[in-house]
Design a protein around this nucleic acid. Structure first.
Lengths: 236, 236
DNA sequence: CCAAAAGTGTTGAATTTACACCCATGA
DNA sequence: TCATGGGTGTAAATTCAACACTTTTGG
């Protein structure tokens, strides 16, 4: 009782977006980090986050810091893990509830960068404050894992997208090429996306059909907790 | 900063064991609950747990309350989820880090029951305090899910076990019969268990070979966090 | 011998994988 | 017309599911 007040609660978020690598032109996974401006780890890069407000839910807090650092709204937001080892922050006891989020690539392209906010390629982040390197690695593992049995990939894209675009997302995240023909069949038979009437023209080749995420499809990836509610909607 | 102190941190644990149902003789999933002895929800059953100690890690806290309520040591302990909605506890703001644990069936058989600690069958728990019914449902979903792609089932058994015993665990958790021949092949090809030299005699039928959990097999179920360290061992 | 569970074999179905091939567009 | 990605077809390989059958014990 008396002792519990000594524990502080913070919420941090690993924010993923896809961007083209400046070197080659390949799509890769990126995430924004913020520079710490006080001890401990003054000057080090760290995950965006902050103390949990007394009147905000955990996911709300994650979405708030996400908006504050990137000016973006997440397409997908899910709790990752609670980190609370006694030794993870020198001189204080902090339990961090960490979320991970996906934002649309086209929005991320125009995201602000300042002296204290910078985007990094996910597989070459510097040495971070606290245990944040472990957290980033775990979030990346979860992203790659979940991509294969759910349909979060569309969260990186707009409302409609071609199957090539969707495949490009998978290839970027999983870092391996996928057979276009088999990918198409897998996705179509999953029922998670539905074709629209529109085509996307413009490339110097046959136009591609646009698909849309199927909101009516059942979500079996979160069990009784249901689809992780994005702040704004409501769900038990 | 100032506001963060208003949030209390608690750790609760969903403890699973297998027991034979008193009605029929079938194995089913059980869990211990404790009766609340103060408001809010005075008199209601709830998950065992309590405030996080200032000098204990999250998993340590879960194992401690587990030992306090059941006098048992968990064979498996993993973080489930952090629940922190503002409205989940009337009049106070509590973030609960919830763990789930598996204990051996033979130990659970001799577990104490008191006026304020009782074991319930998992699919017929009463109306619980707080949001604990949701938590139990989610933990059950996770248990059933994880059983199919990891080898936590052996945590319900002793050091050595027959494949029939292991299959009985699966059947109890998944609530459906499994083909003995196919189950055997699946388990053997997974590499997660290895045969010993011993046989188990006693039934009036052919003796069954005893198997042991293969500690050398790689654990791919937790990603970069590694196998969830049980209190006592150490791991980053 | 018989009953019962341990353990092996086999077959057809379903799924995955690799890759050949046609289609429709811009240049 | 050619190059390029969109989209379909198909056959081999692999995995999965159902079930027949043999083995070894206790009674």
């Amino acid at each position: 009782m008396t002792a519990a007040a000594a524990v502080e609660v913070a919420v941090s978020t690993v924010i993923f977006a896809l961007r083209r690598s400046p070197a080659d032109d390949r799509m890769t996974v990126w995430l924004p980090l913020v520079r710490r401006i006080r001890e401990p780890f003054d000057g080090r890069w760290a995950l965006p986050g902050g103390p949990l407000g007394p009147n905000e839910d955990l996911a709300e807090s994650a979405a708030r810091t996400l908006a504050e650092t990137t000016l973006l709204t997440p397409q997908y937001l899910e709790q990752l893990y609670a980190f609370g080892n006694t030794d993870r922050s020198p001189g204080e006891r902090v339990v961090s509830i960490v979320y991970w989020a996906l934002v649309r690539s086209d929005e991320a392209d125009v995201a602000v960068e300042t002296e204290n906010v910078r985007w990094f390629e996910a597989d070459s982040v510097p040495e971070l404050a606290f245990d944040h390197n472990v957290i980033v690695d775990y979030a990346l593992w979860r992203l790659r894992n979940k991509l294969e049995y759910s349909h979060i990939a569309s969260a990186f894209l707009g409302d409609t997208f071609t199957l090539s675009e969707l495949r490009e997302v998978h290839e970027a995240v999983l870092q391996k090429p996928l057979d276009p023909a088999n990918f198409r069949r897998q996705v179509e038979s999953s029922g998670q996306v539905v074709p629209t009437e529109q085509l996307r023209t413009g490339g110097r080749h046959r136009p591609a059909r646009l698909y849309r995420y199927n909101t009516a499809a059942p979500d079996t990836t979160s069990g009784p907790l249901g689809a992780r509610p994005l702040p704004g909607r409501t769900q038990g």
